[in-house]
Design a protein around this nucleic acid. Structure first.
Length: 482
RNA sequence: GGCGGCAUAGCCAAGUGGUAAGGCAGAGGACUGCAAAUCCUUUAUUCGGCGGUUCAAAUCCGUCUGCCGCCUCCA
């Protein structure tokens, strides 16, 4: 049974959907004003795994995200780059889509853009004014936080507490300093026409308008970074529920931040790694694996040193996968059976269940990765038994294990494709290498180590890795080192 | 100042009442002509300090210390 931690209640809750068998989820995307950084990628990977697991559980998932393509920052950045705001937004939205492909993140079913949903937003603002939740002053429209009884329920604050904090910029137009903008007046020619004059939507309103338009007044999951809880998501709840009179979202999920030396990575602080610069140093899968090695709600400290550790750890899993594939390629030697494979397979199935149980517990990917390593240990031990032979029963069991292994990895979005280097399947290359290795074997039989090593070393230089294993000499095209 | 979170081995990290997963590094071993690779075993009487509840606490309560987040744009 799936349990998820809901920020709204501060507890893990049993997960039940509005509509049986279907999950409607909305994840706050980014303002497309620059290249994405690792913090954005963590968020995207996190919700990607959540989505994949929900699909694994059999749900039909409608996963929606957004691109904020209208605001001051975009205008400013566009001026800097000498292009129009729309071009800038397009450029970075496309860059983001390229980035997530690298990280094996499934794209959302739909990315909603503010610029394409202005009508919807205006309609919503209009209704909020009519219902008495919002007011217009000089072409600006504000939401009145005092008019919404439950204001503060997500972030666990009360209006009194927040006013005591008194770190809110003074704005004479607002009835209450905490009131937030729904519609913002801008210079002629820069915005959209509205009943209140030319302007832009406020930041928070877009997510409400677009998510409800696509997913309905009440939907299942709304996700984003913890730094969005207040004010962004708090405000979304206020305006959405004031508008529809219904509960907006059942489960609020928030992922932790990516930190650098303990400090939050963020654009405004200037302390961030873009995903692109990280990808120059490490494979995307390593980054993904690293980010999933910690529970999504906790902050994670980012460094290249940690990525190197993650790389080594990930290789252990990759090796097991490769060994498994190699063994499955061997000829079946005997029909004999031993009891070992039954014990082995029982454990494999148990681990499969443990893996699902880990993710069922608020998507605990760190624990799930631990289970994956346990599975690797079982596979290794089984394959490295002294008297291992590939009999029919072993083959069947290993084939099924491979399937389970790949299925679980797929939930985490990890791909373990076999190295299909160019030439590996070539009708000429393969026999040629086999021939060379035959010569090497003969040299070894004659204890002519010099010649044997020459063949191995020369093959290595060409990019063919030769490994002596208890099952005989194996080779693999690795390609040349760059 | 207000609200919230976190503190587990050398490092990273799971674990929310039943006696400490997993990874990295380290140590030992297996395999090998050698090398590389790989594999196996092993590494916390203890969970920031103190006090309390309980038959039982890393897990609950109180308190102290340290770190972080939000309160302004932010994934």
């Amino acid at each position: 049974m799936l349990k998820v931690y809901n920020t709204l209640t501060g507890q893990k809750e049993k997960f039940e959907t509005v509509e049986a068998g279907k999950v409607k989820m909305y994840v706050c995307g980014l303002t497309v004003q620059n290249y994405s950084h690792i913090g954005h990628i963590r968020s995207a990977i996190n919700y990607d795994v959540i989505r994949r697991f929900l699909e694994y559980l059999g749900y039909e998932v409608d996963y929606i995200s957004n691109f904020t393509d209208i605001n001051e920052k975009i205008v400013k950045r566009a001026e800097e780059e000498g292009i129009t705001p729309a071009e800038l937004a397009d450029k970075y939205a496309n860059a983001f889509l390229e980035d997530i492909r690298e990280f094996n993140i499934k794209p959302a079913d739909k990315y909603l853009r503010v610029s394409e949903n202005i009508d919807q937003i205006i309609e919503m603002v209009k209704t909020l004014i009519e219902k008495g939740y919002a007011y217009e002053v000089n072409g600006n429209v504000y939401f009145s936080v005092e008019s919404f009884e439950d204001y503060g329920k997500l972030s666990g604050r009360s209006l009194d507490e927040m006013q005591a904090g008194a770190r809110i910029a003074v704005n004479e137009e607002k009835e209450n300093p905490l009131d937030f903008g729904l519609w913002k007046k801008v210079e002629a020619g820069e915005g959209w026409d509205s009943p209140w004059g030319e302007g832009w939507p406020g930041w928070h309103i877009e997510c409400s308008a677009m998510s409800m338009k696509r997913l309905g007044a009440t939907f299942d999951i709304h996700g984003g970074g913890v730094d969005l809880i207040f004010p962004h998501h708090e405000n979304e709840i206020a305006q959405s529920e004031a508008y529809s009179g219904k509960k907006f979202v059942n489960y609020w999920l928030h992922n932790g931040t990516v930190n650098l030396s303990g400090e939050k990575m963020s654009k405004s602080q200037g302390n961030f790694f873009t995903s692109r610069e990280v990808l120059k140093e490490f494979p995307a899968q390593t980054v993904r694996y690293f980010l999933l090695s910690r529970h999504y709600r906790s902050p994670i400290d980012f460094s290249y040193e940690k990525l190197e550790e993650a790389e080594t750890s990930l290789q252990r899993i990759e090796n097991a996968r490769r060994q498994l594939a190699k063994v499955l390629n061997l000829d079946i030697e005997s029909a004999e059976d031993n009891k070992e494979n039954e014990n082995f397979f029982t454990k494999v199935v148990e681990l499969k269940d443990s893996f699902a149980a880990a993710l069922n517990d608020d998507f605990n990917t760190a624990e799930a990765i631990g289970v994956l390593h346990d599975l690797v240990g079982e596979i290794n031990s089984f394959l490295n038994q002294k008297d291992f032979t590939l009999n029919e029963k072993n083959f069947a069991v290993l084939e099924e294990t491979e399937e389970i292994f790949l299925e679980l990895a797929e939930i985490l979005g990890l791909k373990f494709e076999l190295n299909k280097a160019p030439g590996a399947d070539d009708k000429l290359v393969s026999p040629l290498i086999s021939l060379l290795l035959e010569l090497r074997d003969r040299a070894r039989d004659n204890k002519n180590w010099e010649e044997a090593d020459l063949i191995r070393d020369r093959l290595q230089e060409i990019g063919v890795e030769v490994t002596d294993t208890p099952r005989g000499t194996e080779w693999e095209i690795k390609g040349k080192e760059e």
